[in-house]
Write a protein that binds this DNA or RNA. Structure first.
Lengths: 201, 201
DNA sequence: TTAGTATGCAAGCAATTACTTGCACACGAC
DNA sequence: GTCGTGTGCAAGTAATTGCTTGCATACTAA
């Protein structure tokens, strides 16, 4: 099989899967969207199941989860930037995440493909919060584990549910900053600590 | 149509919808699960679409969202209890919420049925946080709006994603208490404030 | 040139599925 | 008794869908 053909099919399949889920994604539709004959799908991938799984493996995980500085300087600004970026990535994956969750019973591999991004994001902030603690921005006895869940949960829920209950969220433009600020406060970080450390450094 | 028959069908349809979504819920399966002939479905509800929508209207919204005291006394305990309760309700609706979100494009009414519970929960904590503020438990300039989103987001994400990425959450037993404690800290509530107010009252 | 490979096209098959029709049966109200 | 109502049952229809087969065509490497 030539590479471009295979890639056309995979990306078409991933897109349609996000829109219609497993059952709703017909092999005919994938073929048409990829500009390819339906028979070609089966020749290359063997079955619909295999095709969709391959498509998720190829397009289900975002390439880059947001970056956080190795040496924290301005936690509120840095965390806001990360939250904004992560929210954007989540938003672009929203429909695929939902479909993968809804197909979990019949096709357990799918949510696993999507979960990797979440795990990576969680590891990233947990490590960053650890750095904040080591650098003295937040108290030593802080629950960085729970705070990470809190922030990611807020971003996740925001992306998933804002569409159906907008009044339960801060205005979209302020949301990442709000979540970042509140999470930092939950971690024991406030203006006084920051000032103190800045003076010291 | 006799009431028991209708109710059997609706609850069977709601259950199967939660397990398999719209496309996966066949009228044959609903009829069999309800112990009723398939033709009866169409005689009563006219179409599959109408049947499922009715089922969601009847079983898609939880009867009681957790209660929060009108006069706050011990915020951490009260909020933990509420979070525990709400998490349980969310958990029982998990599959239906996911399917409703995944069917949103083709059937926009469905997520609306489910969203009502979320809106009510959000209103409940926001009001409670307002009471905490009025009672002096937390500073007057606190962002009760954002804190509500934060807490509900953590619970939502916990319920939706713990299954696929368990290491990104506190142990299930501690989770509601953790989220409640951190949210209160984000609100500016800590032991000192509580002690001070207790002495005063 | 030749052989192999990748793809297209036309057709079809078997299973599923939403929905219909026609008829029979039971039961309660009058 | 009888009449209307709610239900069951058997059968069927038209559309969709995953997947296959047979054959033709284009391109590439030896």
């Amino acid at each position: 099989m030539t590479a471009p053909t295979r890639e056309q099919i995979l990306s078409a399949a991933a897109r349609l899967y996000g829109e219609h889920g497993f059952r709703g994604t017909t092999t005919r539709a994938v073929a048409e969207a990829a500009g390819v004959n339906e028979v070609t799908l089966f020749r290359i991938f063997g079955s619909k199941e295999n095709l969709i799984v391959e498509a998720m493996r190829a397009h289900g995980v975002p390439v880059d989860v947001g970056t956080l500085p190795a040496e924290p300087d301005d936690p509120e600004r840095e965390l806001t930037a990360w939250a904004t970026q992560s929210r954007q990535v989540l938003l672009s994956m929203r429909s695929m995440i939902i479909q993968a969750m809804s197909d979990a019973e019949q096709h357990p591999e799918m949510p696993k493909c999507v979960a990797k991004g979440g795990e990576a994001a969680y590891e990233a902030i947990r490590a960053y919060f650890g750095r904040l603690r080591d650098a003295g921005f937040i108290p030593a006895d802080t629950d960085v584990h729970g705070a990470g869940s809190l922030l990611i949960g807020a971003l996740f829920h925001d992306v998933m549910s804002r569409g159906v209950m907008p009044q339960a969220f801060p205005p979209a433009a302020d949301a990442p900053a709000t979540y970042a600020r509140l999470t930092l406060r939950a971690l024991g970080f406030d203006a006084h600590v920051r000032k103190a450390r800045r003076r010291a450094s």
